[in-house]
Nucleic acid binder design. Sequence first.
DNA 1: ATATATCACTAAATCGTTTTAGCTATTGAT
DNA 2: ATCAATAGCTAAAACGATTTAGTGATATAT
Lengths: 338, 338
Amino acid sequence: MGKRVSIKDIAKIVSVSPALVSMVLNGKAEQYRIGEEVAKRVVETAKEMHYAPNLVAKNLRSGKTQLVGLIVTDISNPFYSAIARIVEDRASELNYTVLISSTDENLKNTERLVDVLQNKGVEGLILVPCDGSMGLVQRLYENHFPTVLLDRYFPDIDLSSSCLDNYRATELATEHLLGQGYKNIALIAYNTEMHHILDRISGYEDTMKNAGLSAYIHVRKVNILNPRPGIREALEELINKEHVDAVMFLTNMLATNGLYCLNEMNVKIPDDVAVVGFNGNDAFNLFYSPVTYVKQPIEQVAKQSIDILIKRIKKSNYKSKVFLEPELVIQQSSLRHA
Amino acid sequence: MGKRVSIKDIAKIVSVSPALVSMVLNGKAEQYRIGEEVAKRVVETAKEMHYAPNLVAKNLRSGKTQLVGLIVTDISNPFYSAIARIVEDRASELNYTVLISSTDENLKNTERLVDVLQNKGVEGLILVPCDGSMGLVQRLYENHFPTVLLDRYFPDIDLSSSCLDNYRATELATEHLLGQGYKNIALIAYNTEMHHILDRISGYEDTMKNAGLSAYIHVRKVNILNPRPGIREALEELINKEHVDAVMFLTNMLATNGLYCLNEMNVKIPDDVAVVGFNGNDAFNLFYSPVTYVKQPIEQVAKQSIDILIKRIKKSNYKSKVFLEPELVIQQSSLRHA
DNA sequence: ATATATCACTAAATCGTTTTAGCTATTGAT
DNA sequence: ATCAATAGCTAAAACGATTTAGTGATATAT
């Protein structure tokens, strides 16, 4: 671990000033009318000495850190780790570094992390806002801090966002179930004010209403942090009392937990009840009755979020709200049994 | 986005020198014998003005970045994202920031990422080394760059590491299968020189030999980047020609892909063949025949890796190699049918 | 009364860059 | 021959923090 070579070291060797070395190595030799020979010698010496600029010094001088923050609810959740992978790859292409943090759906944590990341000098944030974070997000907006909301958004805050078209997602799924002949369709959602969930609920409700099935609308809301017990309870009631013939789960976690419950309850899919999930995974595909699900264009959601953020960082009035198209992956769990 | 307040701003307000402000805010008031009243005024003013130190400047001055790198094969792989979550949480407690990158099991990528991260000033690395990376790791060792190998290691390089006791893992699994009465047990592995895989293979082979079942040892190696076709081919042969009664998959990805293949082949588990996987997930649990698997103590592996790294950063001769105990989670897929 | 010690603080250097202003020597124009 | 312009470079300040050496004032010792 010998000392790193600095611009001064090169300057000494080539017998020029540090300033000149800096100019040459930043490709500004022409602009500053540096002699060709000298420039060449500087470049060669830098290469020979394996010079790599000290980014900390660069950052201090420029006031730029080339850092962005990605705040998700839980990086160990496959949905968000898939996003993180894409964001990280794209950011790297754009010469930015991503700092990742997890909030566990907790407001205090979110506030703390925004603080911590801003302290670390991030130039912008990609944020998955949790329940109750509207005030925080509003403050980011008012402070003109470059921010892009991911996956979730606030209709009343005019901030950039990269989200699914959530209304369309459940509309699509509900239409599919109706098309298969299911009528008594229940929905398992989170107990939350977050708009991506409310939109999904609306997409379902409106589609049911338009089909003249208002009487069969069942929405059950469960705790986001520990959904299992609530799901179990809801399913018992929906199946045994309401005799629903299909259940739609509004998120991957809800669906996965739902499958555990349905198994425990010995409910056969799709014979006893059809199932539609959200955001596919191996568990859905390998399930004895492969699970139909709404597929998010994760790659696009992720890529858009970082692209928008970087544009916003570079151009202070840039703004973009995208709502990406869902796709329905139809598998056995939602097909009418022949 | 008003200008951030600096130590100078505080100094001006309190009418003292920036040096004094720095001393006070770093808790060195006593050491430098600063007057109590002045110190109090500095602290209060700093709080009022919402002073937060510029970490870039701090880093430049101190030569420390409080940054560590975590290089995994793919952060979107749930195994590694689970690790990342824990590493990140722990690092945060220890006042370090984690930069995460993915290599896709590619040597060139790994070399590039080590370079990039070192350039970004990381003070140490947690590395999941890919096939062929022994030279790179050897260089890190020789350069005394603080490095901890995660999940995989090199027995010939005296570097810190945090890994599973891989030999014990397959010994455990094989013993279990033997105990259930299975004899003709096959193994699906990666085609690699990496020692964690070789150890797992040895654990299986030795256990089979010790049981006098050398004749029934079947090891099939498939491509790590696209395992599915190789797995399918191996399974066809093992089941149809070798008539194996159990298959052990050496990684989560192998097992998951294996389940897809076995489903396609209409093989019934455990009636036609028993299955043991690695690193449980929802897909295993929700499978029609819940899959027995070797469970790694992921939390410990992750926590140890970052703890060891930070100790190594702080104490240049610190070294620690831990091999953590696997646990076998027994489910239906490996039970002798009654 | 003088030297010494202690107290409470400041000036200035430093980390590695970048940039602005300025310097010197040569060339060109008149 | 003189002035201006240009080419090719350097000195120095700046980014925001930390630390070392040092300063002036007061208190204590001799």
